[in-house]
Design a protein around this nucleic acid. Structure first.
Length: 705
RNA sequence: GGAAAGGUAGCUCAGCCGGUUAGAGCACGGCACUCAUAAUGCCGGGGUCGAGGGUUCGAGUCCCUCCCUUUCCA
């Protein structure tokens, strides 16, 4: 029963701030961790920055700083996010650390002793100007199949074909523009092709519970390979210059970042223990003792993009490194978060900035609840939808949950001076509580948070119904009904305490306030508190406010006008390393500093693609004061446009009308979805808007100009 | 090209091993209530469960084919 959980989330790459995807993962893990702790389990929850690799090195170079300084700067920013969203890591470390170096060396040596490390010569493109070998993503050239220019070294984005960098026509270095030369170098390989590896992994994947079934399927697919090709050996070394951990006995060679990144989980645990923090949390064992203990559970939360590393390389590394290392007990995989159905993309300015969310003063627990209400144990993607978010939080948390305390507590304070009795006894109430508690416990444990939230809200519904049926506000007027009044309020407030316990993993700050301010407890709530009906409350103070949809508008306002790179636009050969999300992309725009000319040349005007469009459908947008959602027919194409014409037009009267669309306006992410263009309308002092319309005879799709 | 996941009311989603008239929340319409930083309660409209075949006494649920979406791999 004394299981100890060692829980990690995927290590974020240290070249940029957290995005909403990171935050979602941390919230998922944090909820699970808090739940386990409320059950009385001991949990060590650690994270770290993933510091190594070429992108960090190159980014530092571009900023005329050192990789260490860059990583430190990024790390300094992490607590704002973590504290802001109540994500309770016990420790946060870095893969560029003495612990990680020691552990990486140790694991590597064990693998070498086990005969699982090979060395062989590899021929690879080398940039003579930068003086370094080039990863595929840093090589560009002409696609050998479709002859599209400026394609990356591994695949063509235009025709989709895959090739080796050496097949590119006229290759050049994306870093320096220089012509790369082929050069050979000795590389080290982890021999995954060894039958021992395949046998071990097959068996590990077979055992239920290690990974979700879908994930096991995926991993098996890689493991068994196709056309008789099984897993191939894994290149784990890189040549200097490289920001990484030097390989023992191999001067000038460094571990590939993906070798030491997961070891960073262990490094963070080690640092957590050595720092004395673990001791403060009641963990007296050493790093080795903790890992080796049979009742330790090593649990990783990751996104589906890194399944490969966590279900093949990582377990194999740990297994063949031997004790005290333990093979992961669980790898929990989640999907991506999309925003209004669109894949989030920093470069397109979509997605939600977690920092902006906090800066706007939006309540972090709103987001925690909303994500919990949509998260389950599958690998499916999750959509953040602004309207859904507002409805869900306002209705569930304020309308249902908080409302129970808000409506029942004043009676108790006013009529009973804050003391609660149970004239009808607590037996039945406890039975109900036990049942709900057990249901929700199972859901949380299985990471079926959405189900847990549904169960919790069903219970809240029952409490509101019960309260309604008993009509305490009527009872309060009749002095002979004191017992009935007391009973109806006691039931509601006990129910509220149960709800608060159930929601505490998701809403830790709110639960803490309820415990302290309302229930007068000087400690956080535990699961078992849900079976202690409260006997006294302090006067109720409002616990949570509703979301004003206007607050969300600001969240979705783009921070600045970010150009939308279209697929066909020629890529400027830039020195910006791919993946360095922090690099300024806005510098790529065509218009440079010159002031706008007073007149427009015909060429400039021609850049505006005006088209005749037929309004196929028009509808109101729930929650929007000014917008109508228009579905436009452009001949063979359909566009969705949000137009600010609600004040002047009835949607029903618009259907079928022709109008004018700016067809090549950069799509703009709005709170309600993506607006793919702009319809033209006139407006002025005297009124408007007046929608423009072509003369009769025009056909949808016709070019105007 | 191969694979995985998904396609259920306007929106977000539940529907386990096939079984009476397909569910919830939100939105919408109506009613009630007034304790609640305006919320709750009741009633209601609304779905050819992606399409087409098949198995079965009976399929949203199993099988086959196809279409669409997302993702991964080569």
């Amino acid at each position: 029963m004394s299981e100890t959980f060692f829980v990690t989330t995927a290590l974020p790459y240290a070249n940029g701030p957290f995005h909403i995807g990171h935050i979602m993962e941390y919230i998922q893990a944090d909820i699970w961790v808090r739940f386990q702790r409320m059950q009385g389990k001991r949990v060590h929850f650690v994270g770290a920055d993933d510091a190594h690799g070429a992108p960090v090195m190159l980014k530092a170079q571009a900023e005329h700083t050192t990789p260490e300084a860059l990583v430190a700067r990024i790390a300094a920013d992490r607590p704002r996010y973590l504290e802001g969203f109540h994500i309770g890591f016990d420790h946060w470390h870095c893969t560029h650390s003495s612990e990680n170096t020691r552990l990486s060396h140790d694991i590597y040596r064990h693998l070498r002793t086990a005969g699982l490390i090979d060395s062989r010569s590899v021929e690879q493109f080398y940039d003579p100007v930068q003086g370094m070998f080039l990863a595929d993503r840093y090589i560009k050239g002409e696609c050998p199949k479709c002859h599209a220019k400026d394609q990356y070294g591994d695949a063509c984005e235009v025709c989709g074909s895959v090739y080796a960098p050496t097949e590119l026509i006229a290759p050049y270095s994306a870093l320096s523009g220089a012509k790369p030369v082929l050069r050979s170098s000795d590389h080290f390989f982890f021999r995954l092709s060894d039958p021992r590896c395949a046998a071990f992994l097959r068996q590990w994947l077979e055992q239920p519970g290690h990974v979700q079934p879908q994930v096991a399927n995926k991993a098996r697919e890689w493991l068994e390979g196709r056309d008789g090709r099984a897993l191939s050996d894994w290149d784990i070394s890189r040549d200097a210059p490289y920001f990484g951990i030097p390989i023992p006995d191999a001067p000038g060679k460094f571990f590939y970042v993906w070798l030491d990144a997961p070891i960073g989980y262990l490094a963070s645990l080690q640092s957590y223990i050595d720092s004395g923090k673990a001791r403060a949390n009641g963990e007296m064992r050493t790093f080795e003792q903790l890992l080796a203990a049979p009742d330790t559970r090593q649990v990783h939360f990751i996104g589906k993009d890194i399944i490969y590393f966590h279900t093949l390389f990582w377990p194999a590394m740990l297994h063949f490194a031997g004790p005290p290392y333990r093979v992961p007990d669980n790898v929990h995989v989640h999907g991506f978060i999309t925003v209004s159905g669109e894949k989030m993309s920093k470069s397109r300015g979509t997605g939600i900035s977690p920092l902006r969310y906090l800066e706007l003063g939006l309540n972090p627990e709103w987001l925690r609840y909303y994500l919990a209400a949509k998260l389950n144990a599958t690998v499916e993607d999750l959509d953040f939808n602004a309207q859904d978010f507002v409805a869900r939080v306002n209705s569930d948390l304020i309308g249902k949950y908080v409302n129970i305390a808000s409506r029942a507590a004043p009676f108790v304070t006013r009529h009973f001076d804050g003391s609660i009795d149970y004239p009808a006894g607590t037996g039945e109430l406890l039975d109900v509580a036990r049942e709900v508690l057990e249901q929700v416990r199972e859901s949380y444990a299985a990471r079926e948070f959405a189900r847990a939230m549904r169960q919790i809200m069903t219970f809240a519904d029952r409490l509101n119904q019960d309260f309604d049926a008993r009509r305490p506000w009527i009872l309060a007027k009749d002095p002979t009904q004191r017992a009935a009044l007391q009973d109806s309020c006691a039931r509601a407030l006990y129910g509220f305490k149960v709800l608060t316990c159930l929601l505490a993993p998701v809403l830790p700050a709110l639960a803490e306030r309820v415990a302290r301010e309302l229930l007068g407890l000087q400690r956080p709530l535990a699961w078992a508190d849900a079976l202690e009906p409260p006997r006294r409350i302090h006067p109720y103070r409002h616990l949570m406010t509703r979301i004003d949809p206007k607050q969300l508008d600001a969240l979705f306002e783009p921070a600045g006008e970010i150009p939308v790179p279209t697929k066909t636009a020629p890529q400027t050969p830039s020195v910006e390393p791919a993946g360095s999300s922090g690099a300024p992309r806005t510098a790529l725009t065509a218009t440079q500093g010159a002031p706008a000319p007073p007149t427009l040349s015909i060429e400039e005007f021609k850049r505006i693609d005006l088209r005749v469009a037929r309004i196929a459908a028009a509808e109101h947008v729930a929650g929007a004061d000014k917008l109508l959602k228009l579905t436009l027919d452009l001949g063979g194409e359909t566009r969705t446009v949000f137009a600010g014409i609600k004040s002047a037009y009835d949607p029903a009267a618009l259907a079928g009308r022709l109008t004018v669309l700016v067809a090549n306006l950069a799509p703009r992410k709005m709170k309600f979805g993506l607006s793919e263009g702009m319809v033209l309308a006139a407006s002025g002092e005297t009124g408007g808007p007046y929608l423009l319309a072509p003369d009769s005879g025009a056909i949808p799709g016709m070019r105007i100009g």
